[in-house]
Design a protein around this nucleic acid. Structure first.
Lengths: 189, 189, 189, 189
DNA sequence: TATGAATGAGCCTTCATTCAT
DNA sequence: AATGAATGAAGGCTCATTCAT
């Protein structure tokens, strides 16, 4: 017996997102999503062909605006370096907060199923590239700039720190951002 | 006779460790361990009550020497700060390399089962505390030292970066350490 | 208005029939029929209470004209026996061809659902009876006529062979008919 | 809690075979087999990687002795043709009876999953080839021998009739064989 | 009446754990 | 103590059917 539910897709996404955020990809099963959203399992599959695709859709959507924001930051050519990095960190942090940490699988450990997924890796590479471009556009202080691959390493470090810091101390937004800005900016001329 | 038992246990640990390192906690199942070690599944359970406990035992053992090393570093009171940090990073990195990244679950995403586990968290806190003590023992540069919780944040960052850097570029040992030392030491007076 | 409805029903039948013929009863699902016919799933159920009933309706209709043809053959009393059998086989084969093998479930393996169905079995018995009557009306050669139940057995054999031969070599119409006529007529005096 | 059951594999096969025979491949699910055999579902998978493989194993095994019998008949070169065919039919019928009709999927309608399966088709072709060789070794009467592909068509017909006749009148063994022998032998010189 | 989204029982398969030998 | 077969709960997904619009 079908229930009448408005904005079903949004409902599914919202419920699934909450669960994915709280329990991670593997801990969440389709029945949980069904229960949480009040939508039958079969219905979920009317909207998404598989659990993975549902996750990917949520993930991709949640990063779209961040990508736009990164492009915008990329285009800021006259801003002082440290300002730029601050903007980068703040943006990433706040977007991470908005999507409640979704994306934690990008660096570090991701479920096998996702790690193998083309779209997942494409999204991840997209993110890394966009951030790296910004990192590359500012000068690093000499001691660092002698290192091989500084830009890549800094990019990974920055993303990792933002994603994780948010997860570890989600309630300390300002402190987190503050620390990250000061910390990362030590590398920037 | 106890020799044989010891050997068996060692065998289990060795095989399981290799698998856990290569495939991660969730991707490894007890049959894989049984096959790799040549020891029956039931026997595994004679030595370890559960998969989790087997993992935990391996994890704990693999960090014991690191803990000793950390204590040793802790006791170095006359060494210059940056030297100390360098030693800290090098030690942690090399130990991480020795155990091939085991411990990647400490920061970032860990399987639900582990995250809930008391021993896992206790081990993690032990590590964090020991590192934090070392971090605390050196002076941070002013811009950073104004941040709340600098020591905790630096500790987490440092561990996270070492663990992840090793995973992302396992073949670039020197570059990795170099970068990490230069990067972290920017925070140190 | 009734025109439109009739068209709809015809459309459903035509689409469903094509699918049932190509993929068989079980491989076809209601969504496929809906897609192929351009008619909503719910509408299909306005016309047919179930997938089975839809199939049955198509099946029954597709055999109506064959039944008439069989009656006609039955009424040919002056025709030589082998001529009669030839006509029987040719008619059955060509009708089988026209409905593209629909009815393959009559002999041999039918989906559980159909096998249990009263209408299905009634249709099947109708067919068997009509053919048996024709078979009974001609004399079999002595060696065969000593067998118990020759008429039934010959009837089943004949139907089975026609249905299957068409399926196995659908493009060899003439060869198939030829073989069947020669083969079956060996039994006829 | 494991039960102690002797001859587990035989038990599985026997139960599964009975079910497959009575209900067909698709109607049988792993839980039914589990229940009927008193063996847990997971255990079934210790013996067979999938439902299809379980079925294929049963099918293949059940035809092995028939294949040997066919080879034996093939090697009878001095026996009169009609005797040979009689032997062929009797053997096939009795073996069909022994395995209770398993193999009904060879001609006619088989479940999609099996139809696609390489082993299934290989087994089927093996059977067809072996029977065709025997059929080819005897002379057909003139009227038939003019037909294209007589041997193939006779082979298919014979197998089809045996398999189906058994299914339709399982209790009339003698009548069935009698009829089949007389019927088919009409084609043989 | 036509629509097609919603339903949920049911299927195949996996895997940590148990226990008779 | 060592074995590995046996267990069964649980998960992803399908599809005939229903029903609010």
């Amino acid at each position: 017996m079908p229930k009448i539910i408005k904005d079903l897709e949004k409902n599914i996404k919202k419920s699934a997102m909450e669960l994915f955020i709280n329990y991670g990809y593997e801990q969440v099963d389709m029945k949980m999503i069904s229960k949480k959203s009040g939508i039958a399992v079969g219905t979920l599959y009317n909207y998404y062909k598989s659990k993975k695709l549902l996750y990917m859709d949520i993930l991709e959507e949640s990063w779209q605006s961040t990508f736009l924001n990164l492009d915008e930051i990329s285009s800021l050519t006259t801003i002082p370096s440290k300002e730029k990095i601050k903007k980068l960190i703040t943006t990433l942090y706040e977007d991470t907060e908005t999507r409640n940490g979704l994306g934690k699988y990008f660096l570090g450990n991701s479920p096998f199923e996702l790690n193998e997924d083309e779209n997942f890796n494409s999204l991840k590479n997209n993110l890394l590239t966009k951030v790296k471009n910004i990192i590359s556009s500012v000068s690093k202080i000499e001691t660092l700039s002698k290192c091989n691959n500084v830009d890549v390493m800094l990019t990974e470090s920055l993303l990792l720190l933002i994603l994780t810091t948010f997860q570890l101390h989600p309630e300390n937004k300002n402190d987190n951002i503050n620390f990250l800005v000061e910390f990362i900016n030590l590398s920037i001329k």
